[in-house]
Amino acid sequence: EINVTSHGEEQAKHWIELAKRMNLDVEVEIHGDKIIITIK
Rank of each mutant, 00 (worst) to 15 (best):
H14I: 14
V4M: 06
I39D: 00
N23V: 15
I2H: 05
H31V: 10
I2Q: 08
K20S: 07
E10P: 05
N3L: 11
S6H: 09
A12K: 07
K40E: 02
H31K: 09
T5R: 03
V26G: 01
E10Y: 12
I36S: 02
E9I: 13
H31S: 05
I30C: 14
A19C: 15
L24S: 01
E29I: 11
I2V: 10
K40M: 05
I16L: 08
N23G: 14
I36W: 08
H31R: 11
I37Q: 00
K13S: 05
D33C: 14
E1P: 11
E29N: 04
M22R: 03
D25Y: 15
V26P: 00
I36N: 02
L24Q: 01
V4N: 04
E1S: 11
E17N: 11
K34V: 10
N23P: 02
I37H: 00
S6P: 06
E27W: 11
N3T: 11
Q11R: 09
I39W: 10
I16M: 07
E1A: 10
I36D: 01
E29M: 12
I2S: 08
T38F: 12
S6V: 15
T38K: 09
V26A: 02
E17T: 14
I35R: 01
V4A: 06
A19E: 04
G32S: 10
H14V: 13
K40V: 03
K40L: 03
I36A: 01
I30W: 07
H7G: 05
L18E: 02
N3R: 13
E17W: 15
W15G: 03
V28E: 00
G8V: 13
E1W: 14
T38V: 06
I37E: 00
E1F: 11
L24Y: 07
Q11F: 14
V26D: 00
R21K: 04
V28W: 04
D33H: 07
A12M: 12
N3E: 08
L18N: 02
I16T: 06
E9W: 15
A12P: 05
V4Y: 06
I39N: 00
K34P: 00
L18F: 13
L18W: 15
E27D: 04
K40Q: 03
E9Y: 14
I37M: 03
A12Y: 14
S6M: 11
L18I: 06
D25R: 15
N23R: 14
W15N: 02
A12D: 06
A19M: 14
E10L: 08
I16A: 04
D33S: 12
V26Y: 08
G32D: 09
I35N: 00
D33K: 06
A19N: 08
I30N: 01
H14P: 04
A12S: 04
H7Q: 06
H14W: 15
T5L: 08
E27K: 12
E29G: 02
R21E: 06
G8D: 12
N23I: 15
I30G: 01
E17A: 14
I35V: 03
L24K: 01
T38W: 13
K13R: 10
K40Y: 11
R21W: 15
L18P: 03
W15T: 02
H14L: 12
M22I: 04
D25I: 15
T5N: 09
K20G: 05
G8K: 06
I39R: 01
T5D: 06
T5Q: 07
D25V: 14
N23C: 09
D25Q: 12
S6C: 15
K20M: 14
W15I: 08
I39P: 00
D25A: 12
A19L: 15
E9L: 14
N3M: 13
T5Y: 06
L18K: 04
H14R: 13
Q11I: 11
I2W: 11
K20Y: 15
L18M: 08
E1L: 11
G32H: 10
K40T: 06
D25M: 14
K20P: 04
E29Q: 10
E27H: 12
V28Y: 02
E9R: 08
I36F: 05
T5M: 08
K34R: 11
S6Y: 09
V4P: 05
L24F: 09
H31C: 13
A19D: 04
G32V: 09
E9G: 05
E9A: 11
L24M: 03
N3D: 05
M22V: 03
G32F: 11
E29H: 09
T38E: 01
K20L: 14
L24I: 08
I39M: 04
R21P: 07
N23M: 13
E29L: 10
A19P: 06
V28R: 00
L18G: 02
G32M: 09
G8Q: 10
Q11W: 15
W15E: 03
D25W: 15
H7D: 06
I35F: 04
I36V: 06
I35P: 00
I35G: 00
E10G: 06
T38L: 08
E1D: 07
K20H: 07
E29A: 08
K13Y: 11
I16D: 03
N23K: 12
H14G: 04
H14Q: 10
E17I: 15
K34G: 03
S6W: 11
E10H: 06
R21Q: 04
I2M: 07
N3Y: 12
H7T: 08
I39K: 01
I39S: 01
H7M: 11
N23W: 15
R21T: 06
I37D: 00
H31M: 09
T5W: 10
M22H: 03
V26K: 00
M22N: 02
E1T: 12
E29P: 00
I39L: 10
S6I: 14
Q11P: 04
E29W: 14
I37S: 00
A19H: 08
V26W: 06
A12L: 14
A12H: 06
I16V: 06
Q11L: 13
V26M: 04
I37V: 04
I39Y: 04
K34Y: 14
K13P: 03
I30V: 07
I39A: 01
D25P: 07
L24G: 01
I36P: 00
V28T: 01
L24N: 01
T38D: 01
H7I: 12
D33Y: 13
K13N: 07
D33L: 12
I35Y: 04
I39V: 04
K40R: 11
A12W: 15
I30Y: 07
V26Q: 00
A12F: 13
N3Q: 12
K34C: 15
K34A: 06
D25S: 14
T5P: 06
N3H: 12
V26E: 00
E29D: 03
V4W: 10
T38S: 03
E27S: 12
T38H: 06
I30R: 05
D33V: 09
I30Q: 02
G32Y: 10
D33T: 09
D33A: 08
Q11A: 10
I35E: 00
T5V: 09
V26C: 04
I2L: 08
G32K: 07
M22T: 02
E10V: 07
M22D: 01
E17S: 13
H31E: 06
H14M: 13
H14A: 09
T38N: 03
H7K: 09
I39H: 00
N3F: 12
D33I: 11
A19W: 15
T38M: 06
K40A: 03
E10T: 07
E27Y: 11
I39Q: 01
W15S: 03
I36L: 05
S6N: 08
H7Y: 13
V28A: 01
D33P: 03
V4R: 05
K40C: 12
S6F: 13
D33M: 13
K34F: 13
D25E: 12
S6L: 14
I36Y: 07
T38A: 02
I39T: 01
I16W: 14
N23T: 13
H14N: 05
D33G: 05
A12N: 09
K40S: 03
V4E: 05
D25K: 14
W15A: 02
I2E: 05
E10W: 14
A12R: 06
D25N: 10
K13D: 05
K34N: 05
W15Y: 03
E29K: 10
K34I: 12
G32E: 08
K13I: 07
L24T: 01
A19T: 04
E27I: 12
G32W: 12
K20Q: 07
E27N: 07
E17K: 15
W15R: 08
V28I: 10
W15Q: 06
I36T: 05
E10I: 09
G32P: 09
E9D: 10
L18S: 02
